[in-house]
């Protein structure tokens, strides 16, 4: 649909405002993998409650805003093996790289961080190659 990019831009602005609030008020970089990963490997230390509250907001607002876009579908694959492999790659990869689309992408690139830009080009490139190979060559996804 034509209005997809309008929602994209509007949603993007909200994401950026979230990152701005987290940076300017809490002094933290809003990176989803870092916030979650720090809880998983216990490197969060005493910052764990702040992370849990942040994540609660991430889960809760889509519930509250559901009437704005009712019936939103994730179109998630039903292939469990694919989901497990992808989840493992995303989990290990984002922690090795110290960031994902939010940390390296939104927060890193917006301050012209070299690491953020190199990471973003790497994951977008790898993602594009994966889709090209598995969708157009092998027809798996």
């Amino acid at each position: 649909m034509d209005i997809d990019w309008v929602w994209g831009l509007f949603g993007g602005l909200l994401i950026g405002m979230g990152g701005a609030v987290f940076l300017l008020f809490n002094g933290r970089i809003m990176g989803a993998s870092g916030i979650i990963g720090g809880l998983v490997d216990r490197s969060a230390g005493r910052s764990w409650p702040e992370r849990v509250v942040f994540l609660a907001g991430v889960v809760l607002l889509p519930v509250l805003l559901w009437p704005l876009k009712p019936g939103t579908d994730t179109h998630i694959t039903g292939n469990i093996a694919l989901l497990l492999i992808a989840g493992l790659l995303v989990g290990v990869g984002t922690r090795l790289a110290n960031g994902c689309t939010s940390g390296h992408g939104v927060c890193g690139m917006s301050r012209l961080s070299v690491r953020g830009i190199v990471a973003s080009l790497s994951y977008i490139g790898a993602g594009a190659i994966t889709v090209a190979l598995l969708r157009h060559l092998l027809g798996v996804i």
């Binding site: 984002t94 390296h104 994966t130 598995l134």
Partner: peptide, 28 residues
């Protein structure tokens, strides 16, 4: 940084999910 990002990108491309949206869509 490079190896991790490439792994992440491969998983991201495979199913179209990254960490933020995975949590945001938890309810639906």
């Amino acid at each position: 940084l490079i190896a991790g990002s490439v792994m992440f990108g491969a998983g991201w491309g495979l199913v179209g999910i990254c960490p933020g949206p995975a949590i945001a869509s938890l309810s639906y």
